[in-house]
Design a binder for these strands. Structure first.
Lengths: 224, 224
DNA sequence: CGGCCGTCGATTGTTGACAATCCGGTTTTT
DNA sequence: AAAAACCGGATTGTCAACAATCGACGGCCG
């Protein structure tokens, strides 16, 4: 069995469910019943519960006491907050290094951008993974394991939310290539004030369109 | 029993354990065995496990697979990261409102400072609660529930860590009054750049002394 | 006819027992 | 004597059954 590393059932269930939600096989709003998952995965409810609690923490599912659990419908406000939190951590990482990325790091970013340029619009997964890779380079720079872990857990929720939006889908690949190019250019500048602003803008741009898409007033939201 | 709001066993256990750890009745490094807690609280291991997983997420306990669980010995590096994350969120909150706190908010802060001034050095709990109250005012300003919740979960771990340090204890009350006064003064200035710097400094000051206390080189750590 | 109450079904919350895993010391083997 | 194999105890990981809770439905009474 455990050829390389033993995995608990909880971990397996957790990974499987996360994938199902991120791939939208389990759409937002879907009821998630422990008993059903138990039968589906062939494990008892214990590990299922523990996995679901973790996903709840990541904001992928939602428990209502004594009522049940369902895949969270992530609202525009949720996404707004998630992106603000991710921004904060990335800005922290940049401030810690004083905006001074190495040539190797810029090369790595350029390589990701190069790959992004080739993605066709429908290939959402590829866009998401490139997006992740690029921002990950920024976070790694901090060398802070706990911060990176916290940042990573924020990703899952924001992926679901953004992917769910039509406004996000339209012209996705090209747009993502463009805004990431802009971001990397600002990083090259090395001015932490400008970078801070650029990171906020980078994240707020898609949120703005989603807000507009759903007819929410932008009045009370800053950074737009 | 549940006159106003029903509470699950998990929630009760969770709160009780958290208190025991924060009050250092359960000291860092103490082994925590599910079976023992089960007997002690008179509930089965299920709720205990779920409570411990939550505390693990807050960084209060640590699981080693198939080996056991113990109260986390929070290192200086842990505290460094925790404080950086809290800083990030508070800075976010300030940036969102452009550093513009209302008169009522400044009054509330002044009131907390007034209370802080009277605390004698030994009364750590009182210092901690005032500290919390003051920073909470900053966070509330964001009106972002998820961010506030994330910020709150970071508090528990940092409380344990800072309280554990001798360097932190010495002249605690007076020092805390002083550095919070400074912080509020900068907030009054309303200059977000200065505030950002002040918040970092505010959190990094105690960490610095703890690092020095434990003989760790500060070379690789920024913001000192 | 409308509002209250009790019942019912579905689902979570909880329990005690069983199985798998790891650590340490001890025995066996070379 | 050193290394490998192996047992034993402790603890987590997992399971299937039981109990408590909530929402909805339908009957009863005013």
């Amino acid at each position: 069995m455990g050829q390389l590393s033993y995995r608990t059932l909880r971990e397996n269930v957790e990974a499987a469910l996360r994938m199902k939600i991120l791939s939208r096989e389990l759409a937002p709003g879907t009821r998630v019943v422990e008993q059903n998952l138990s039968k589906e995965f062939g494990v008892s409810r214990g590990p299922i519960r523990e996995a679901l609690r973790q996903l709840e923490h990541e904001g992928l599912v939602e428990y209502v006491r004594n009522a049940g659990c369902s895949v969270k419908k992530i609202t525009a406000e949720d996404l707004y907050e998630l992106y603000l939190m991710r921004s904060s951590y990335e800005i922290l990482s940049v401030e810690l290094c004083g905006g001074a990325f190495s040539q190797e790091e810029f090369d790595a970013m350029a390589q990701v951008l190069e790959e992004m340029k080739t993605i066709r619009d429908g290939d959402v997964n590829h866009v998401v993974s490139c997006d992740y890779a690029l921002h990950r380079i920024i976070m790694e720079k901090s060398h802070l394991p706990r911060v990176i872990k916290a940042w990573e857990e924020l990703n899952f929720g924001s992926i679901v939310a953004s992917i769910s939006s039509d406004a996000y889908q339209a012209g996705l690949a090209k747009r993502q290539f463009k805004i990431h190019s802009v971001l990397v250019d600002v990083l090259r500048g090395g001015d932490t004030t400008a970078i801070r602003r650029a990171i906020y803008d980078h994240y707020m741009f898609p949120v703005k369109s989603i807000f507009q898409d759903s007819g929410v007033s932008l009045e009370k939201y800053k950074f737009f």
